[in-house]
Design a protein around this nucleic acid. Structure first.
Lengths: 229, 229
DNA sequence: TAGATTGTTAATCGATTAACAATC
DNA sequence: TAGATTGTTAATCGATTAACAATC
């Protein structure tokens, strides 16, 4: 592909030193990253009513080489039909099975400002089995406010209890940069292992916790370089 | 690294077949992607008052291997000091020089809803030399509304003129999925070559136009896989 | 049948890692 | 000096690509 945002492919590491030759072998980071991206495009294609899709079309949308895509998929079975392509529905469920993300996963959202409301109101997460089950804000004036049909802003002090009761696995930070580290610390203390950071804070977390920082400017810089040269 | 969002590294392609051994050689996609990420961390580290940073710290924040980082940088000069690390300020300007993104670049934002307002109000873009110079919305009720100190929502019909007059190089779509393709078409017609898409639409654009679709759910799915296994 | 697209191989290229001398 | 960290090499592994037979 010409432009790869997850060009994070860039920067992969081995996952475990020991071998596990069975079917239950853990995916490499690269394969898992790419399968996730195929899933996103397939989900959207399904919404648009597409029944089949070719590896070339998937390549156009994901910026992953079409041969690479066919190879990634054929490693798990013969999902395609020659001369036709892949059935969208069936490929979605196959990849979900491979990624073991067929279940529902609960998210807690921090910050009920513009960004928080935008996230709560969108279905970018819902489409992939993630559900925002709680929204927190430190501003007492916002507590109790209705954010969507099913969400009301909660008191920040209830964080630990809510995370336990609602079985939250991911914390999403839509708070000001100055507040991000404190929320991250509280999430770590509450046992959350995945943090999605929309602020530009550099978060300090223990090694067992994964932080993903959203950085649209990085993608723009990258795109711009190839535009300028 | 354990977790690579730009793991887009995943899916890189050769840029040009011909060789160009001079100093003006174009960066490979992987290198450009990684340099962009170093820049983001360095910019934030600078904000936090850090004077030096080691390749190991950069590795922790970017999820790129520290040897890889030292190698990427040493390809352009000896920027570090043994036993000390890299000077943050000087590394920022070196990388900006390499990426040729020292100038200012103008962005037009589409959609003045929650997400659009969040983007206009943040400095994620501003920190990297991008400036939102115009905000558009199709809703007549929003036109004329003040979004920030310097931004007022404009009429969508003025798109072409504004893009020309303001020298806009990037269009950011913070519009509903249904509206995204139409805006993309109009941007392409106006000559914009980089589109940043926050909707989950699968945009159809000519090959010379680069689309980056923000997909937080993809990153979550990926992080979740390694959490579950 | 003809056209399209998968599944797969083989070759190349770049990323990743460990290791360590150089040096601040 | 002692400790830390860069710059660089060499080995390995995975991504990328072209090419094409298989087959829908």
């Amino acid at each position: 592909m010409r432009y790869d945002p997850t060009a994070g492919g860039v920067g992969l590491q081995p996952v475990r030193p020991e071998a596990d030759p069975g079917l239950s072998e853990r995916l490499s980071l690269g394969v898992a990253a790419r399968l996730s991206r195929y899933l996103q495009v397939l989900t959207q294609a399904k919404k648009m009513g597409r029944e089949t899709i070719s590896s070339q079309e998937l390549a156009d949308y994901t910026h992953v080489n079409s041969t690479q895509i066919r190879r990634d998929l054929s490693g798990f079975g013969k999902f395609g039909k020659r001369g036709v392509g892949y059935n969208v529905d069936s490929l979605v469920s196959q990849i979900r099975k491979i990624l073991r993300t067929t279940g529902k996963h609960n998210i807690a959202l921090f910050g009920a400002g513009n960004l928080g409301q935008a996230i709560a109101g969108s279905d970018i997460f819902a489409d992939h089995g993630f559900r925002v089950v709680a929204v927190f804000d430190k501003d007492p004036k916002k507590v109790g406010r209705r954010i969507s049909d099913s969400l009301t802003v909660r008191r920040y002090d209830d964080l630990e209890r809510v995370i336990r009761e609602e079985d939250v696995v991911v914390g999403v930070l839509a708070v000001p940069t100055e507040a991000a580290q404190e929320v991250a610390d509280d999430l770590v203390a509450a046992g959350v292992k995945i943090i999605f950071n929309y602020s530009d804070a550099l978060l300090q977390v223990p090694p067992e916790v994964t932080v993903h920082t959203s950085s649209p400017a990085v993608d723009l810089l990258y795109a711009l370089y190839f535009y300028l040269t």
